[in-house]
Amino acid sequence: MKKPDGKVVLLGDMNVGKTSLLHRYMERRFQDTISTVGGAFYLKQWGPYNISIWDTAGREQFHGLGSMYCRGAAAVILTYDVNNLQSLIELEDRFLALTDTASTDCIFAIVGNKVDLTNEYALLLERADESRPEKPVTSCISTKVQKQVHLDDAVALYKKILKYKMLDEKDVPAAEKMCFETSAKTGYKVDYLFETIFDMVVPIILRQQAEGPPQTVDITNYKSAKRTKSGCCA
């Protein structure tokens, strides 16, 4: 059977927009999604490689499964909602430990989604629109909310993750490169996020392929090898 070459896992609290992000990237559109059940598997052709993407359920009900979906992962995308501080805190409290089963050279990305809801984003649009001053953007700003989580908070979390994984900052991609702010609704930086991750996963795939099958298979092989040996002796 043709197995996928590398694995990317989306983790994060419920309602932060994991499914929407993936949907925006794969289907090129945004639609209301329904709370994910368990995990959903997708395959993405990236150059000569088949990258598997697991979109996991953020609900606590499925918490116990996280480590299963993360097994051997080459990249983990930790997602939070920039308007919900708790969703960032949950990443450290609840989701980080699930990545223990990921590949040892796994890369981490921290993604703040739903930036379209913040006033910062409205300002950003306004600046882009300055060439067309006839457009009234100010009315739009009033409906926006003050962003709750800033990029610095994500960077701080990234450094905590490195500490947790006992990784040296020199050996991994820089925090600034691995913290993203996106909007699945408008498509803002969604392609950039996934394409950056996939490009980084390719060298990991090559390394994994060079090293042979992952550890889990080794154990079974070891067992059956032992059995054949005793069979020989008997």
Binding site: E27, I34, S35, G38, F41, Y42, A57, F62
Partner: peptide
């Protein structure tokens, strides 16, 4: 939610 991807739950 079952209509996209392959679900494992």
């Amino acid at each position: 939610a079952f209509q996209a991807g392959e679900i494992w739950t």
